[in-house]
Amino acid sequence: MTATGKYLRIGLGVAVIAALIIVPMNFNRYGLYILSQWAVMTIAAMGLNLTLGYAGQVSLAQGAFVGIGAYAAAIMTTQGGMPLIAALGVAIVLCFAIGWILGYPALRVQHHYLAFVTLAFSTLAFLVFRNEDWLTKGIYGISNIPRPNVMGFATNRPLPFYYFCLGSLGIVSLAMWWLIRSPWGRAFVALRENPVRALSLGIDTRRYTLMAFAIGSALGGVAGTLYAPLTQYIDPVPFNLSLSLDLLMMVIVGGSGFFFGPFLGAMIAVLLPEWLRFTQGYYLMLYAVAVMLLLIYSPTGILGILDRYLTERRTKAASALRAVAKSRLETAP
């Protein structure tokens, strides 16, 4: 990448971040709610992107981890009167541990069995949320979940809460950026690209795969602890298998294995249906068609298109250079 390209990218990044902070200031409550939802879903999808895009494992339980995080937050803040940060810690530890325990036997056997085990886990988690009334209040759900105070600032109003979600997204993104560039992150990618080679290079493949899955699951829990105060009411229904499938869709549609894939994927999944609502009863149908068309056009997701375009342009530029060089050679006496 050339120096100008680098500056261009930094400039674009700063502009997007500034827009995310400034533009929503005069949004109505609905717009802020949707944007907060986007931030929360992006965090969950980033976790899944680590599991899927970097370590190459399919998890169908990310929605269940969001649920675990949400219930941890809801129960601890409404019944225990504890601050959200405590719930966050519990959610991270819980989801990490459950992810580890779940992945351990599944990865013992074969690659894609993690998908099957997590599929089963996802529905089991839903049944526990629904049936264990004493803990989760069952199907009645938990109401009046408070929004947190962050360093003395109350986030009850929609705008401060949006900044809270955006800030959390920023922190998670930075941590993820660091993780991917760390030796661990490189090991994850080595695993996805060529497990046999990684093994021969002395990487303990199972441990790293497990680690990626557990960290990814923990991020699901983080998203959950934000989801609960966002809606201020949770019941088991939103955390069934379809949320896990939705999150998987976000990762694939955005571009699995690309850092910014989850941002775009969550945007498609959260904002596109909202845009299409003007078509009334047809909006989900159109959404489904749009996702199918996008995947047919580019099975590697939105960022796959960009990637393809950039590669093409680079080859074109290279061949143009070659052509120029060749013509010069020919015209040279």
């Binding site: 109505n28 409550r29 609905y30 709610y33 949707i34 939802q37 759900g141 989801y227 966002l230 809606t231 201020q232 009411y233 949770i234 019941d235 229904v237 939103p238 909202e274 609502r277 009334q280 909006y283 989900l284």
Partner: peptide, 21 residues
């Protein structure tokens, strides 16, 4: 105006917010 809550409380909240706005 009719808005779909997708039978999901989180979506219902967004749509009611939009309606109230």
């Amino acid at each position: 105006t009719h808005a779909d809550s997708q039978s999901n409380p989180g979506v219902a909240r967004a749509q009611v917010q939009k309606a109230l706005d």
